[in-house]
Amino acid sequence: MPVWERSSTARVVPPARPRKLAKVPFVELADGRLQGVVSSGSDIGRVYVSSIAAGTYAFACSTNNNRPCGGARGTFCNHIRALVGEAVLQYGAERVARYLKAETPGGEPDAEALVSVMTGTRPAQGDTSAAAPVFSRFLRHLAYLELEPTTAPLPEMQWFPATRTAA
């Protein structure tokens, strides 16, 4: 077997790159979608749940109370564009492109190229049924901050070494 396959500490998922969280507090590549939560520009108490499906680029954007986003008609709204931008910061453009199955012409993709490739296919507007599960994943994500640190040793963390190289 190759060395990587025989390694107990092979790096499988690169760690997230640091980014500012104010505009897009949550983004993930999961359930076959790029999805996340985008802060409203005008109302501090409101957030939008935005997503793009891998392969079809079907997009959806609505508030956490399931009111449709006025901008997401016919094409990507600004929330979805912000989501792509922050996903590229967190995961690197290449990983986002691979996950969404979006091939950008030329070399290293960037957020702008990704958006233009996807909107160029005139993607359909998806339904907002994913909004509730995405929002609950965001709440679960936030709940991690509420959990107490412990000083009992976790021997299994030896399988998860720190990694200098980010995504």
């Binding site: 997230a16 969280l21 640190p149």
Partner: peptide, 26 residues
């Protein structure tokens, strides 16, 4: 001997943020 401190975290807490989570407990 060893002394460990650990915490669950959101994936966006990285780098120096790791020290900040753990520091107050040990």
């Amino acid at each position: 001997v060893r002394a460990a401190v650990s915490a669950p975290k959101p994936d966006t807490v990285v780098g120096a943020g790791l020290w900040q989570l753990l520091r107050p407990r040990m």
